[in-house]
Every structure is written in C-alpha cells, then in structure tokens.
Write a protein that binds this DNA or RNA. Sequence first.
DNA 1: CCACCGTTTAACCTAACCTTAACAAAAATG
DNA 2: CATTTTTGTTAAGGTTAGGTTAAACGGTGG
Lengths: 237, 237
Amino acid sequence: METEKKKILLVEDDPNFGIVLKDYLSMNDFDVVLAKNGMEGFEKFKKDNYDVCILDVMMPYKDGFTLAREIREKNENVPIIFLTAKTMKEDVLKGYKAGADDYLNKPFDSEVLLMKLKAILQRKASSTLADSKQFEFEIGNFHLNSKLRFLKYMEEEPVKLSPKENELLRLLALHENDLMPRELALTKIWRDDNYFTSRSMDVYIAKLRKYLKKDDVVEILNIHGEGFRLVVKAENQ
Amino acid sequence: METEKKKILLVEDDPNFGIVLKDYLSMNDFDVVLAKNGMEGFEKFKKDNYDVCILDVMMPYKDGFTLAREIREKNENVPIIFLTAKTMKEDVLKGYKAGADDYLNKPFDSEVLLMKLKAILQRKASSTLADSKQFEFEIGNFHLNSKLRFLKYMEEEPVKLSPKENELLRLLALHENDLMPRELALTKIWRDDNYFTSRSMDVYIAKLRKYLKKDDVVEILNIHGEGFRLVVKAENQ
DNA sequence: CCACCGTTTAACCTAACCTTAACAAAAATG
DNA sequence: CATTTTTGTTAAGGTTAGGTTAAACGGTGG
C-alpha cells in the first residue's frame, strides 16, 4: 500500500499542457488520470478513488471551482489543488480559495508542484483524521492567508503572523463557531501536552485576541477546561 | 488531436492584406478565421477555441491592444501575436508586449511569421510549466530581462545583473506576490542547502533589495523560516 | 602574475519567535 | 466563602533567522 503509486486526477482543458503535465507527473511516479473539462472530471472522479485532485480553474463546461464543490460533496477529505491564472483578481479568488488545499499560479514551477504534492501526501499519511491543509479563511472582516502568514483587516495593511500564531488561528478558523479543544492545538501545533506548552498556548490566544480586537464581530471565547471557540457573530440582517 | 489543423484568429482591418495573409496561412495548413476589426474579432473569439490570435494593432472600432486585453480576460493561455507599425515608439509597445507572445513589425516577412507560429505552438505545449524558460518580467516599474541579465528602471540605463542575482530575481518574479520558498532557490540555484549557501542567498537578497529600492511599489518581504515574497503593490486606482 | 569580477565566508547587529515567569482575574470545587 | 484550578495578560530571557557590510577567495583574461 505504501509502495503503490499515488493516484492523481488532473483536470485541464488545454490538451497540450494537460499531456505535458501528465507526463511529467507520471515520470515522477504518480498514476495520473487526465480529464479535459469539469464534466469529464467529475465522471472520472466518481468512478475511482484518488489521492489528490489537480484542477484548472478556467475550463469550459464546468469550471474548477464548481467541480471542486461537487467533489467535496462526494468526498470531504481528498486534497484539491487549483491551477489559477496569475491575472485573476485576488478578490475573485479569495472566496473560492477558502475551499482549496492549495493553489498554484500559472505559469508555475513544476518542482513547486512536486513539493506541494509530497507535502500533502505526507500530511495525509501522518494523520488518520481528515486534516486537509486549507489555508485561506474569512473571519468576520478579516482575511487570513495561512500560507503567506498574514492577517488582513478590511483594506488595512496586512499584519504578519508568526508560525504559531498562524497555525493556532487557522485551527480556530477550521472550527469556527465550534469548540477547538485545547488538546487538539497542543498535539497538532506544540506536539506535546504539558503545563508549559499549555501556558504557551494561552499566551498565543492573548496575542490573537489583540489582533482580532479591531472587529467586534469576532471573538475568541474560552470554554473552561475544554478549549476555545472562535465566534463570528452574524454581521446584521 | 495532435494531428488536427491549428486554428488561428486573424484580426486585420485592411481587407486586401487580410485576405492575402489568410490565404497564405491556409496554404500552410492552418485553419484561419478572419475578422476585420476588434469588435468582430472579439465576437468570433468568444464563439470558438483558437490556438493562436494574430492581431493588428491599428484598427478602427477596437484596437488590437484593447482586444488583446479582452481576450486575456476570457483566456489567459492563448498566444497572441501583434502586428505593429514600425513607426510605433518602443515605450508604447513595452507595456503591451508583456502580455503578448510575440510581435511583428509591418511590413514583415511571411516566412518569419510561419517560424514564429511554429515556435509558439511548440512552446505552448510546455508553457504553463514555468520551467520552460520565461525570460522577461515586468516588476512594478522595472523590466527584467533574464536572458540578457539586465534590470531596467523606467527610462534609466539598464543595470547588469550577475548570474546569481539574475536567477534569484527571476525565481522571485515567477512567484510574484506568492511565497518563494528558501529551499526552492537553494536547490535550484545553489544546488545545495546548508548554512553557508543559505547565508549566501541572504546576501543576494540584500543586493536585490538595493536595486529595487528605486521603486517603492516593489518590495521583497521575508516570511520567517519559509522564504521570501516579491510583492508589487497595486500601482494606484 | 596581477587585476577584476562574482561569489562565499565572516562578523556584527537587529528582528522575530517562543518559552517561562509572575501576577491578576475568573471559574470551579467543596 | 475559602481554596484550588484554570485562564488572561504582560513582560523578561534566550535562541535562531535574517539584514547588511566588508573582507577573503577563486577563477578568468589581460
């Protein structure tokens, strides 16, 4: 099982590029199935099990975002990587990226793609639980980019986050409005659960609260003895 | 699929020249659709998929540059070749050329066009992989020519770059506004990842920062422990 | 053999990051 | 209500990564 090739569903409408990329991945020991649009991609997805999906965003018949949503309905674990055009507006992508595990701007570096695949598959192997690497979030009026490690409030200058701040906020966001157990953060981020790491985590909660103070719709609540809860109050309506 | 004729959208307002060129290309095994201005060109573009677009720049109703921009919105991949008047100013073209794959000054040699078409179609197969060398970049108000190893700011004299400076800046530009992992540069440029190569890279980052200081829209940010990010802030609007 | 150029190594300094400590406040416990 | 446990918060300390400049190195061509 460990020795089997990993299966990739590649959905790309440009036949030339599709074949080049497929060959490149095949050469690097992946088992690649190529579909040439979203429709076909979904058919192929239903017929087999894949370890990763790589989806072009701009495609006729069914674009990558729509396809991703459908794939998610069938399988909420499989990692999805988007291939996006560099020219696309940040704010167009913003909303969609929230559902992705990663993305690459075209043109991209084939080595970067390999690095990402390796990282994703390793991550998947090391944790039995679905722990997909989703890395962009809308938290009230904040936008968290967990890949580039910044937190942006409205149109202000983004604030840089440290690795621990970033991971912790990301974990909270993944559990938005729900309990994020202490133990979870400690084992995932600190990889150890003792008095000191626990206190360290509290320090980071305080730091995050300071960042989030700008928006009074967002709040980190403590659930005594259990963990924390990132609440986002309904804006209005 | 590989054997099918390549489809060309030719947009040219001069009917005589348009028909001559169309016939010439048809004779050389291309499937050519001719439009006689930008408006018509865009309509035809939307109705079909093309492998290449050849656009005259000077046209009534909608010029070639405007059309190119619209085409790019629909499709970020399709190669575009401009036909320009020899008299046009270099600096007028500069900005637009960045979005184009090639251009030809009128009058031009029909064989040159054929060669370019062949080259472009061949290149396209691997063009979405960035490793297929991309050599020119617009970075804010800088222009990087990575093949000739120079960096030009506005109308100033170009600055020569050393091989390492050049490769590093190119790699950053390929990942513009995105993370360029330390590890990537070290393996790709230094071919080794240790303390000293890493420090060497930091020295080169400092050099690049010094070059880029002229334009305060451009900046190299560090993401602690991860890598660097070449950010180009939105000019204005 | 020297001068030059690109690159590496060294050195020094600052910034970033994380932990630990200390004390205050809140919540649970009996 | 007194006591214990948990959490909130700020600040000090230590460690590592990065910023920058300059000197050393090594290859190349005069």
